[in-house]
């Protein structure tokens, strides 16, 4: 009797979760993301950053040195694809969407980061981001994360986003404690990811898929290829399959990683050449269409809204 009620409860939880997670596709006009959509250029961002003299140590971010912050911001501007989420962290979602400001509005991003540094809070998109004290104290102190160790500006940005945006995965761990960059505190479910895209950037988001179920798309490679012409395509996928970490076949398959799709094409042998951006680099893998369909749980297409 107990087992039956337990099963019913689990089924209800799954159904409620699905309802909560189901994503309503955006309905605004889709505009291709081309050069004309750029709001500012890297040159303008560099000019702004170079014009900053005597940036004082922020009282809000005691472990982020001003010269290091400026150096990091200049590096983001020059090498946006080198932006790195760090080893063993749960920052991949924040890293993937950072491609948008670094590419479309590097000046806006630089201004935001400087304001955040000076005032401990700043406006970005539709939100005022005001990170809590534990997060501000931690930025600049993250270690053993690869090149993120040298990137306090990146740490500030990731920790601020993770502190501000919350989804159901963060329900039991909402207050930052040391080491939480690796835990559910920093995790991002698919609905939260799309919410961040909508609130942070001036664009429209068309999303397919959910946390537990793959999207029903007949020809996924063709769908992705077609949508890459319209905007930026972010994928929510099963990282354990994309980057094998053990020989064990897991019974439960769930997505845990976000990447930006940078290219996709069908090869003559029927396989798919799948190129994506994560961990500060572009990666190319040749995968079978079936494998690709198996690992992708969410597709978010972001297109910039251009004011008339």
């Amino acid at each position: 009797m107990m087992t039956v009620s337990l099963k019913t409860t689990i089924r209800n939880i799954v159904l409620i979760t699905l309802l909560v997670l189901s994503v309503v596709p955006g309905s605004a006009t889709i505009i291709p993301a081309g050069d004309s959509a750029l709001k500012s250029t890297p040159e303008q961002a560099l000019q702004y950053l170079n014009s900053i003299r005597n940036l004082r140590q922020s009282k809000w971010w005691p472990n982020v040195a001003p010269d290091q912050l400026l150096n990091n911001l200049k590096t983001f501007t020059i090498k946006p694809l080198a932006f790195y989420e760090g080893k063993t962290t749960n920052f991949c979602a924040y890293s993937a969407l950072t491609y948008i400001p670094l590419t479309y509005d590097p000046l806006g991003f630089a201004r935001f980061m400087i304001e955040l540094y000076k005032n401990g809070q700043a406006n970005f998109g539709k939100n005022q981001l005001k990170p809590t004290k534990p997060v501000r104290m931690e930025a600049g102190l993250l270690r053993y994360k690869g090149s993120l160790d040298l990137n306090p500006a990146g740490q500030m940005w990731f920790l601020t986003l993770a502190d501000h945006y919350k989804g159901y995965l963060n329900f039991f761990n909402r207050r930052f404690q040391k080491g939480d960059e690796n835990t559910f505190w920093a995790s991002t479910n698919f609905a939260k990811f799309n919410r961040m895209l909508r609130r942070l950037f001036n664009g429209t988001v068309k999303a397919r898929g959910a946390d537990l179920f793959r999207p029903k798309i007949n020809d996924l490679p063709e769908y992705l290829e077609a949508h890459m012409q319209k905007g930026l395509v972010f994928l929510y996928l099963n990282n354990k399959k994309l980057y094998r970490k053990s020989h064990k076949q897991s019974l439960i398959s769930t997505p845990t990683h976000y990447v930006l799709l940078t290219n996709i094409r069908r090869l003559q042998d029927g396989n798919i050449e799948f190129e994506y951006w994560d961990y500060g680099a572009r990666t190319v893998q040749q995968l079978s269409p079936q494998f690709l369909k198996n690992i992708i749980y969410g597709v978010s297409v972001w297109t910039q809204r251009v004011s008339k």
Binding site: E275, A281, T283, V284, Q285
Partner: peptide, 15 residues
């Protein structure tokens, strides 16, 4: 095997 070829700006992971 999964062999990762590291080129200048791109990683190629081939099986």
């Amino acid at each position: 095997i999964s062999f990762e070829f590291n080129e200048d700006s791109v990683k190629y992971i081939y099986h």
